[in-house]
Every structure is written in C-alpha cells, then in structure tokens.
C-alpha cells in the first residue's frame, strides 16, 4: 500500500532530518455531506520529515482531506492515527495543540492586523498569560510577548518579509499575503504543516520563492509537510511522495516518478474516452 521513498530533490544523506516513522496514518476515511461522497475509503500515511503531496482534479476531495486531518470535518468512517494514537473527536483547536498547523486555499489572514501581529497571533498556543496578567503587564506576560516577538522576527527573516513587518496585511499583494500566512502557520513551531494550495494564483517567481520556502522549512526545522497543489511541475519537484485523488477516491500513491507514469493519473487529468 505504502510506496517506497525516493528523493527527487535531495539525496538521503543530504537531509538534515532523515525520513522516519509514520506521523499520520489515515485508515479507510469516508466523508459524506448528505448524498455527496466527498471521500470514499481513503488510506495513506505521512512519514516524519517528508513532504507529502495530495493532488487531483477539481472536486477530487483534496481540501476535504486536509480538513479531516485537522478536525474541521469529522469523517463518518475511518480512523486517523497521530504518532500511533487514534484521534477521536478532533477539533481544529486540538489539532493545533498537537502541533498541526495549516494554511488555507483562500487566504485566511487576519485582515485588520499587521504582518507582525498576524504572525504573533500564530503563537496563541504558546501564550499562557491570562488577560489580567496581560492587562497589568505582569512579568510572565511581558516575557511571553518578547519571546513571541523573537520567534516572529526569526520567521520574518526566514521568509524575507522584514520590510513589510508593520504593514496591515490587507494592503499586501497576493503573493506576499500567502507568504505571511505560511509565516503564521510556522509561528506555532508545528511538527506537521498542512498547506492548501500554497502556490495557487502565483506567477512563476512567486512560485519559486514559495517552493524554496517550503523546502527550507522542511530542511531547517524538519517540519513534515502535507501539501495540496495543482502545479504538477512543483509537486513533482518538491515532494517525496504523492497521493492522487479523483472523485473522492485514492487512485495512486507513490513517488513522483511512479505517479507521473501512471495511466490512471493520466486518465484522471486528461480525461479518457468512454
């Protein structure tokens, strides 16, 4: 079922964080909305430190898959295991607490806030000071604020967005907003990062920047990345393994090369004569 691992971009010895044991194991997931079968009997796993892509034509169920992983949707059937533990009654908040961060297909930034505030808002789970401590500027509140700021600044530097740090995000162009959203997801220091079409609507330079950022995150922090993407070139270049969905069903699971040459995938994307 699970495909062997092959690195399309890096040799195994070059990786700072070698691919390890499964982090996420999805077993026979089915999700229905009334009569619509969004996902049918899907199983795959995600290994520690790998970049895992989910691809498929429009309406294949890719975003639903991500929403199931981080608890926005609860599947009718199937189980999800996170580091060997079966997850029941997942909510986005619980997923965040376990170290799963994500970005959204349509940018879901906090529009009225600056870039810095958006990224610092990603530190929610690491702020333990109560509102009274914050109001009275108690030592713990101050310390956490400075800590969050340091981490936010580190991410800002990492993503090369220093110049816009105090700009309200609503004023930024699309590509930068996408990058800020990635920054917010990173601020929580996640172990698993879910990216929903991080490169949709970008031009080639923006795509290259984003690719580099994703590879850097994976390489620098060892973050496991699960991403949905339409751009085949991008997917084939950066991911370790690829799952292909079509009409809510898994059709192929394997390395980029295997996927590329698979007849089912070609049929799903190009259509097939009936």
């Amino acid at each position: 079922m699970t495909a062997p691992i092959q690195h399309s971009t890096l040799q195994p010895t070059e990786r700072a964080y070698p691919i390890g044991a499964p982090v996420l194991e999805l077993d026979s997931i089915s999700l229905r909305f009334g009569g619509v079968h969004a996902l049918t009997n899907i199983s795959f796993n995600v290994l520690e430190h790998e970049i895992r892509a989910i691809i498929g034509p429009n309406g294949a169920g890719k975003s639903s898959m991500l929403n199931v992983i981080n608890g926005i949707y609860v599947p009718q059937e199937g189980t999800i295991k996170f580091r060997g533990n079966v997850l029941n009654g997942m909510t986005p908040t619980k997923a965040a607490a376990m170290g799963i961060s994500r970005t959204f297909q349509n940018i879901a930034l906090f529009k009225g806030m600056t870039v810095l505030d958006n990224i610092m808002a990603g530190r929610t789970l690491h702020s333990h000071a109560t509102f009274l401590e914050v109001a009275f500027q108690a030592p713990r509140a101050r310390r956490e604020e400075t800590e969050s700021r340091e981490i936010a600044e580190e991410i800002i530097e990492f993503l090369e967005i220093e110049h816009i740090r105090k700009t309200p995000v609503a004023r930024l162009p699309y590509g930068l907003q996408k990058r800020v959203e990635l920054g917010r997801a990173l601020a929580a220091r996640p172990s698993v990062l879910l990216l929903d079409e991080p490169m949709a609507g970008m031009n080639i330079e923006e795509k290259q920047d984003m690719c580099r950022s994703i590879l850097d995150v994976n390489d620098h922090y060892g973050t496991t990345v699960v991403l949905i993407e339409h751009d085949m070139g991008v997917v084939m270049d950066i991911s370790d393994r690829v799952v292909v969905l079509d009409y809510g069903k898994k059709i192929v699971d394997g390395t980029p090369d295997e996927v590329r040459s698979n007849q089912n995938v070609i049929d799903a994307y190009l259509g097939v004569a009936h």
Binding site: A121, A135, F136
Partner: peptide
C-alpha cells in the same frame, strides 16, 4: 495593554477570520 498584547490579538483574530483563529489553537 490588553489590546496590544496577546489578548487583543486573539480578539482581532476572532473578528477577522474565526476559522483561522481556531486553527491557530484559539
């Protein structure tokens, strides 16, 4: 103090995009 600190960011996150706020763990 609340508005410019983590408390205020939480409020504004809920105001601007509640789903994303939940995903950050709020």
């Amino acid at each position: 103090n609340m508005a410019r600190g983590s408390v205020g960011r939480g409020w504004m996150a809920v105001r601007d995009m509640d789903v994303a706020a939940e995903v950050t763990g709020l």
